[in-house]
Design a binder for these strands. Sequence first.
DNA 1: CTGAAAGCGCTTACAG
DNA 2: CTGAAAGCGCTTACAG
Lengths: 341, 341
Amino acid sequence: MSTIRDVAKSAGVSAATVSRVLNNKGYVSEEKKEKIEKVIHDMGYEPNQIARGLAKKTSKTLALIVTDITNPFFPELAKGAEKAAYLNGYSFLLGNTKGMDNHNDDYVKLLKNKYIDGVIIASHDIDIEILKEQENTPMVVLEMDNDIENACTIKVDNYDGAMTATRHLVSIGCRKIAHIYGPQYDSTAKERLEGYKAVIRDTSGLSEILVPGDFTINGGAETVQNLLTQYPDIDGIFAGNDLMAIGVLKKLNQLKIKVPEDIAVCGFDGIFMTQVTNPELTTIEQPIYRMGELAAEKLIFRINHPFYGKESIELKTKLQIRESTRKVNRSDQKKSFSDGD
Amino acid sequence: MSTIRDVAKSAGVSAATVSRVLNNKGYVSEEKKEKIEKVIHDMGYEPNQIARGLAKKTSKTLALIVTDITNPFFPELAKGAEKAAYLNGYSFLLGNTKGMDNHNDDYVKLLKNKYIDGVIIASHDIDIEILKEQENTPMVVLEMDNDIENACTIKVDNYDGAMTATRHLVSIGCRKIAHIYGPQYDSTAKERLEGYKAVIRDTSGLSEILVPGDFTINGGAETVQNLLTQYPDIDGIFAGNDLMAIGVLKKLNQLKIKVPEDIAVCGFDGIFMTQVTNPELTTIEQPIYRMGELAAEKLIFRINHPFYGKESIELKTKLQIRESTRKVNRSDQKKSFSDGD
DNA sequence: CTGAAAGCGCTTACAG
DNA sequence: CTGAAAGCGCTTACAG
């Protein structure tokens, strides 16, 4: 590996001058500049990022902290983020918080010790208070309400999305629509719940049917039995996320309850798996990849514009209609299924 | 952020001595050592990795290069690797090769410019020849035959796994078993194909039914029509990986062909999605998470033992029997399904 | 056992 | 416009 000194020597200038052309900063005569660029090219010289980092307190690397990369929502996010970062000369450190015990603030320490230039937070396991202390670190927070001073928050209009989902179920003829809501420390779960409630409230003849879930496949599945016992005549389920909807689908399938004939099911997120289930799952699609991309772009912008202040971005969701909410003649079906009450 | 000098001053020693206790290297009197450790603790001092890196040509970070983190095989791998790395004080850089055009060797440059300590390769998109040149970089290669001098290769016994899959289909009564094989530049695809062939060859009454696939869901689905036209009486499909098996399942479902009653389906890999399909998919399970963990462990070992030489590790697969290969009375089924020949 | 000095490979005032 | 010098925060021979 050649160093800046090698380049300088070969070009007959000082290291400082080479550094100036490298950073495109300060005056360099056109003549020397060209000479230096040629030498750099010929030698295949690349600046050592570690040395540069030490001098500039910079690393050209970003961190992406997710709950669990194994949750299908995150890989797509990560890919979008990585792509955008990469195009701007940054690389990406990945951190999972789930199953890492109390080590979460170790990730925060890392930010300092490795001069991580900025961080994307997509995990509720990180303590907001700790985050707040890092006010000098450019930060973008995903899908999570927060009162951090100097961060960009990117989320989807969950309230609107949930309304769309619920209205869609109404529109295909569902009249007993249950909602499986996610953990309420998660603001997205909260907003989705509110969206559901709003539609129920504003539509005559409907009433709230609520059951708590934990945003996992198994959690969704476990919910079903409970739901059917209490409300044997439900004809639609709006799950707070796709994972739970997938669990619901599995369970209904085991119970020989037909989707969408007996019960229609709608999820939320738009993860890829929704196209793999049988029947395919109707869902409220978030632009996941785009969110990752945008997060990285906004982050890099903030790196270049420190203390930019608070910013909130809300993206639109899109109703993706699939087999699990195909319109069927519900009055017939309901009769044959619910004979209880 | 306090520096080593702050610690030294506060402990009344030189920076060199502090460095010695930090690195647990060289002699330090017990008395000073204790004093220094106390100061370090009290100040909450943490060594700056960038500075340390520049001095030691080290970064305490690893790179994981995958084809596409969006492929469900990789997140689990990444998680295992990250966990193991994390426990050893390393962090992880993630790189996707797919969709990155010719920029792949940029990843390799990164290794040098950021003093990446070691790299796990899980992508065929990286040129083996380029890899070979990096003989000084500790490296572990996953699921890929290679002749790199100084690397650890970790893979699964694909040949054996494919035999197990094929035999399993035979054991539930299948007699016309097709294999959708993956791209043959991929050594795992090759080995799986060989395993299939071996069983067909050694079992009387069976003959090879082969069709090429591309290891994707859509690719698997597209294969089906073709297969059914040529061999309307097949009663079992062994797909070269789970993704293709999932595609097959979707297509068969669309065609109202029953799994497992008409055709039994078996995949390979053991990705989580196989539990989400309907019916759930029988598969040859690889210990994916463990492979990631092991990869990181071996890599770190190599970082501490440079030029350790070539090493190959082969892990066992496990047949995971699920609904898609439930035993049914095939002679009946076949009749009702294939009326052509 | 310990400290002063040099060095890792850059960048950035400063002086000219 | 350019170079010498100092500095980023560590580590590691070297001398004592």
